[in-house]
Amino acid sequence: MNLVFVNSFEKRVEEDRVITAQVTIGERQGVWSVLWNEPDKDGKNGQDCWFEGDKWQDMMTAFRLRLAEKTAEGFLPLVEGHLEGIEAPSAKTRYSQMLHYFSECNSNEELYQQLRLWRREQAIKEGKPFYVIATNRVLRMISCYVPQSNEELKNIPGFGDHKCTLYGNNITDITKKHPQMGTFPLEWVIRQIDPYQFKLWVHKQKEIKVKAELERQNMKKRMLELITQGESLEKIQQSLNLPRREVILWTEELETEGYDLDTFIDSELQQVPTVDQELAWKAFETEGDRYLKPVLKKIYNEEEIKSKDLDLTYEWLRLLRMRYRKEKASESKVS
């Protein structure tokens, strides 16, 4: 067997005792295998086959998922970085991770809820998604470190000059009513963190990310199956229990990845008047296809736009844009 990858892992079970395990990836005559070696409670080495097959992508999926599960159990790699050649985080990234980790364990819950309420009201006022105003992670860090001026607020990762200009005063009006647990800058946080527990937390975040991505990939596969079966966008949305906008975005991703969605797109566009499609096509040629709002204004006047269901209108414009981009890409290859 050709050994392609190997890494050792340790799990702390007692103050002075660790369990050592090893993962290997090998290839023999085009067949990939992923093996996990771990001693049992009697110290006898046991082997678990995580994957055996000829598909690299399926092998990597199994590798990522099972490795995430093992790190969640407490097994930490002796050598950081996995098969894809992921580089170790920079000092800045690691510092941000430490501030995030510490805030999850030490935030002021009352202040956190007050900040969430402010964000909700601000997002509704501006007509923006909540996360555009501030993510939960940022609010959690603010509720932990309690900055009481814009200068202190800039020490929070993800809250720079622009966000401070927009929302700094609103936030500090709330935080000033609460005591701080430490001073700014926040380098003192590093000394308060247990390195082992922090490392476990980092790997737990990786596990969450891997599982979310795998779930997303499975949903996309299911969506592709439904498209192949001739289901409509509405039926797909109901089957996957996703917002229609999400289904459209995934359709764009599948088109970009090279899947043939022409029949599905043609079927959905049958509901759109031909004259509207022709006007939109001409607008793509004159206005470009990056932004849809200028295209919309070329098709309809202000009064017509007010009478439209804009979600549905942007929906069919995205579908038509997929067809337009595919045709232009084909023309470029010919020329």
Results as ranks from 00 to 15, higher is better:
residue 199 K to W: 06
residue 274 T to C: 07
residue 101 Y to F: 07
residue 127 G to E: 06
residue 48 D to K: 15
residue 318 R to W: 11
residue 130 F to C: 13
residue 64 R to Q: 12
residue 209 K to S: 13
residue 1 M to D: 09
residue 225 E to I: 05
residue 5 F to S: 03
residue 227 I to R: 00
residue 126 E to W: 06
residue 323 R to S: 06
residue 94 R to N: 11
residue 301 N to G: 05
residue 60 M to D: 05
residue 321 R to N: 09
residue 9 F to W: 04
residue 291 Y to E: 15
residue 89 P to R: 07
residue 39 P to T: 00
residue 278 E to V: 06
residue 292 L to P: 05
residue 162 H to Y: 10
residue 16 D to A: 14
residue 35 L to D: 07
residue 72 A to T: 11
residue 288 G to W: 02
residue 255 E to M: 15
residue 80 E to A: 08
residue 117 L to I: 07
residue 295 V to A: 01
residue 256 T to Q: 15
residue 110 E to D: 08
residue 185 P to H: 03
residue 210 V to D: 00
residue 82 H to T: 07
residue 29 Q to S: 11
residue 328 K to G: 02
residue 285 E to Y: 04
residue 225 E to N: 12
residue 69 E to M: 00
residue 134 A to Y: 00
residue 154 K to I: 05
residue 179 P to C: 02
residue 297 K to D: 12
residue 92 K to Q: 15
residue 307 S to P: 07
residue 107 S to C: 11
residue 288 G to Y: 01
residue 176 K to V: 15
residue 138 V to H: 00
residue 51 F to P: 13
residue 154 K to W: 05
residue 104 E to G: 09
residue 181 M to L: 13
residue 22 Q to W: 09
residue 206 K to Q: 14
residue 141 M to Q: 10
residue 84 E to L: 10
residue 16 D to N: 14
residue 80 E to Y: 14
residue 177 K to V: 06
residue 305 I to Q: 09
residue 199 K to M: 09
residue 2 N to A: 12
residue 108 N to I: 01
residue 309 D to N: 15
residue 120 R to E: 15
residue 180 Q to S: 11
residue 121 E to P: 10
residue 95 Y to C: 02
residue 38 E to S: 03
residue 131 Y to V: 00
residue 109 E to C: 03
residue 314 Y to K: 07
residue 149 S to N: 15
residue 117 L to E: 15
residue 182 G to A: 08
residue 45 N to I: 12
residue 227 I to V: 04
residue 226 L to N: 09
residue 304 E to A: 08
residue 20 T to Q: 14
residue 8 S to W: 09
residue 269 L to I: 00
residue 318 R to G: 10
residue 12 R to P: 14
residue 175 T to W: 04
residue 11 K to V: 08
residue 219 M to K: 14
residue 121 E to Q: 15
residue 87 E to Q: 07
residue 305 I to E: 10
residue 258 G to Q: 11
residue 306 K to A: 12
residue 153 L to V: 05
residue 317 L to A: 02
residue 54 D to M: 13
residue 78 L to H: 01
residue 193 I to H: 05
residue 192 Q to T: 12
residue 60 M to T: 09
residue 294 P to H: 01
residue 46 G to K: 12
residue 254 L to T: 00
residue 24 T to P: 04
residue 43 G to V: 07
residue 252 E to A: 02
residue 29 Q to I: 05
residue 120 R to N: 14
residue 43 G to E: 06
residue 27 E to P: 02
residue 99 L to V: 06
residue 305 I to M: 08
residue 171 I to G: 01
residue 280 A to L: 10
residue 206 K to E: 14
residue 300 Y to S: 10
residue 174 I to R: 04
residue 276 D to A: 10
residue 333 K to I: 14
residue 185 P to L: 02
residue 60 M to W: 08
residue 196 Y to V: 05
residue 124 I to M: 13
residue 286 T to Y: 12
residue 61 T to E: 03
residue 70 K to C: 04
residue 263 T to Y: 10
residue 8 S to A: 12
residue 235 K to V: 09
residue 208 I to C: 03
residue 275 V to Y: 14
residue 155 N to R: 06
residue 19 I to H: 00
residue 181 M to Q: 15
residue 111 L to Y: 00
residue 144 C to V: 02
residue 282 K to F: 08
residue 218 N to C: 08
